[in-house]
């Protein structure tokens, strides 16, 4: 940042440079914003969807089998896997935050390393579950 003294009285509106490209965030920042996005997505879609699913599958065998046939569709499986990634990423990122809360790995290098672990673990867990349900 340049710190050239400004003449008195010249209050200029300084331009703001927001870099909105998520890929340019350092790993901890990426984990953080994905923690938010996955949280909001699960609140908005997963909570009502899971309650609906629980209600329909417990109400009777017909509903149960109907939903089972829906889950056999590849498109539905992809959506389910998307939300499983949301859950897994949110979970692993949350465990990282719990560790940061108790002062584990708060220096820059370990924090970056653990952020990368979270990013990879979320995807790997999703792939493992994907293989299981496919």
């Amino acid at each position: 940042m340049s710190s050239v003294p400004r003449p008195a009285g010249q209050a200029t509106a300084r331009p703001k440079y927001y870099d909105l490209n998520l890929l340019n965030l350092p790993p901890p920042g990426l984990v953080s914003i994905l923690h938010r996005i996955t949280g909001v997505a699960m609140f908005a879609f997963l909570i009502p969807a899971l309650l609906m699913l629980l209600q329909c599958t417990l109400a009777g065998e017909a509903g149960f089998n109907q939903w089972k046939s829906y889950f056999a569709m590849p498109a539905v499986k992809l959506i389910v896997l998307g939300f499983i990634w949301c859950y897994m990423h949110h979970l692993f990122a949350g465990i990282r935050y719990l560790l940061l809360d108790v002062q584990v790995g708060i220096a820059k290098e370990p924090a970056r390393a653990s952020a990368n672990v979270v990013l990879v673990a979320g995807v790997v867990a999703t792939l493992l579950i994907g293989v299981r349900i496919w």
């Binding site: 938010r36 949280g39 909001v40 699960m42 609140f43 909570i47």
Partner: peptide, 13 residues
């Protein structure tokens, strides 16, 4: 737990 957790998180957002 989900509902309480979601409330705090969404409120923060």
């Amino acid at each position: 737990s989900v509902y309480y957790h979601a409330w705090i998180g969404i409120r923060d957002v």
